[in-house]
């Protein structure tokens, strides 16, 4: 996680829970049920978010929607500009996505490049009927024509700021923080 100086807390644990619950509801509502739905978490924090959405949907619909994990490392467009290439992890989507509605889930939507890579990675796995995007935080500054279908929290930011999403499963904390990038980190 990037380093910066604390500015404010955007969401606490309750806030996160409410945002995700709402997204879960919206997914079911927009797709008129759970038929053909496949949830796909983008590594890394998209994965626990997807698991939670799966759980909420099961709670109020009684259906366990298939869940997959997507690693987009090999689809990144910045591989040739970063110094040491990141470790690749497995992509694991247990069902065919052919003709399905795939909901990609990530923590933060920023430039849109990760979403672009995730779209490409998904398409290489088959031909879904449609792909939707769900994010916990949309912080703006898009560099590509991409928008989210489900947003937990819209948060106007400056480029000097960092949005840090911390989840119990990964970080042993549960909140969303706004940080100011340290000067020497520029």
């Amino acid at each position: 996680m990037e380093v910066g100086t604390f500015k404010s807390k955007i969401l606490d644990a309750d806030g996160i829970r409410r945002a995700i619950t709402r997204i879960a509801h919206e997914i079911v509502e927009k797709n008129k049920g759970t038929n053909k739905l496949v949830l796909v978490g983008i590594r890394r924090r998209g994965v626990p978010l997807a698991e939670r959405i799966q759980q909420y949907i099961e709670e109020f619909e009684g259906v366990k929607v298939p869940l997959g994990i997507l690693d987009i490392t090999l689809y990144r467009d910045d591989l040739s500009t970063i110094d040491i290439h990141p470790v690749v992890h497995e992509t694991d989507i247990p069902v065919s996505i052919e003709g399905k509605t795939v909901v990609l889930i990530d923590d933060v939507l920023y430039t849109g490049r990760t979403a672009r890579a995730a779209l490409d990675a998904t398409m290489d796995l088959g031909r879904p009927e449609r792909i939707q995007l769900a994010v916990l935080v949309d912080r703006g500054h898009r560099e590509l024509p991409i928008r989210a279908d489900y947003v937990g929290k819209n948060l106007p930011t400056s480029r000097r700021e960092i949005v840090a999403v911390r989840l119990q499963e990964v970080d042993a904390e549960e909140d969303v923080l706004l940080l100011e990038r340290d000067d020497d980190m520029k």
Binding site: D71, Y75, S80, V87, V88, H89, E90, T91, D124, G126
Partner: peptide
């Protein structure tokens, strides 16, 4: 590390569409 990376690669190799943009150019 190589064996781990190869495991990921094998999954990709088993897909119907075996093409990545990773090393374009």
């Amino acid at each position: 590390h190589i064996l781990h990376t190869a495991k990921v690669m094998k999954e990709i190799l088993m897909r119907p569409i075996k093409k990545l943009p990773t090393l374009k150019g």
